[in-house]
């Protein structure tokens, strides 16, 4: 069943220096599965993710032939309808907990804010729900974390708090924008297994945006490779290491390998025909 379908999505920014096209005609559809979007910085992968929630501020513009989420036209929906979607139906986990959590609000307050305001829940009930959400992302001492300030949390803890916050309303689609790139390998593995478990048990759709090809190939079902605002290749994640497109191959080859040769790493060719 298709949860989200996007056809010919374009995101453009009118700047003083002219029109910048961040996303140029991206199409994809998503069921209840894990879709990875990979590419370098500036390839438009984050803008694609944000467009689904219509979180592009002027002077940015979103245009698409079609953008449907579970029968709702995301292009025509009013701002009021979009607000009702953001959070309860489609949630987004941002890249960096340092910048995405409110620094002057205790973690517990931030977790309960939505429950109290949106769902009109009582203090006690909201507290219990928040604790439950923190436990679901395997935070060992949820009571202490509830009382902590964001700066008192490590990167991995902050990231888990953000994931917990997004999962409280039980969304159908989770967009995770580089959720693990600020974390080291061991914590990364932990956060991924939490996400994986949640996708399986709750039947969510997941858009996983990352620049780490190895991570995406291990973790996702399907992968879109983006370059300069276009999808250059779409393939099953397990075949990523056997990618055909020269750009995808280039991205793979420039990674150092344990036990690899000590010669300079091959640089990525950004000037070939397919880049235009």
């Amino acid at each position: 069943m298709t949860l989200l379908s996007v056809e010919n999505l374009r995101v453009t920014f009118d700047t003083e220096a002219g029109v910048v096209e961040a996303v140029r005609g991206v199409s994809f559809s998503l069921g209840r599965e894990r879709l990875g979007i990979v590419g370098e910085s500036g390839s438009g992968k984050t803008q694609t993710g944000r467009s689904v929630l219509r979180l592009i501020r002027p002077p940015g513009r979103i245009e698409a032939d079609r953008m449907n989420f579970d029968g709702i036209d995301l292009i025509k929906a009013s701002e009021r309808d979009m607000r009702a979607l953001r959070g309860p139906r489609i949630a987004m986990v941002m890249q960096d907990p340092k910048y995405s959590l409110n620094p002057v609000m205790r973690v517990g307050q931030q977790l309960m804010e939505g429950l109290r305001r949106r769902d009109g829940m009582g203090k006690k009930e909201a507290h219990a729900k928040a604790i439950e959400a923190l436990a679901a992302v395997q935070i060992r001492d949820p009571e202490r974390v509830m009382d902590a300030w964001p700066h008192e949390l490590s990167g991995g803890m902050g990231q888990r708090v953000m994931i917990a916050m997004m999962l409280i309303p039980n969304p159908d689609l989770l967009i995770a924008d580089e959720p693990t790139s600020a974390l080291d390998v061991t914590v990364q593995a932990e956060v991924l297994s939490i996400l994986d478990n949640l996708v399986r048990t709750r039947g969510m759709g997941l858009i996983f945006i990352s620049h780490d090809l190895r991570l995406v190939s291990r973790f996702c079902d399907r992968v879109l490779v983006m370059f300069k605002g276009k999808v250059v290749e779409e393939l099953p994640a397990r075949d990523l290491m056997k990618a055909q497109h020269p750009y995808t191959q280039g991205l793979l080859n420039c990674l150092p390998r344990i036990g690899g040769p000590r010669e300079p790493l091959p640089a990525l060719d950004r000037n070939a025909d397919w880049a235009r």
Binding site: E40, S41, H211, G250, L255, P256, P264, L265, L268
Partner: peptide, 15 residues
């Protein structure tokens, strides 16, 4: 840094 930029930076450091 991204994978491709990481490769360039590591090459620079080695050089």
């Amino acid at each position: 840094l991204d994978a491709s930029v990481q490769a360039e930076t590591l090459n620079l450091l080695n050089r």
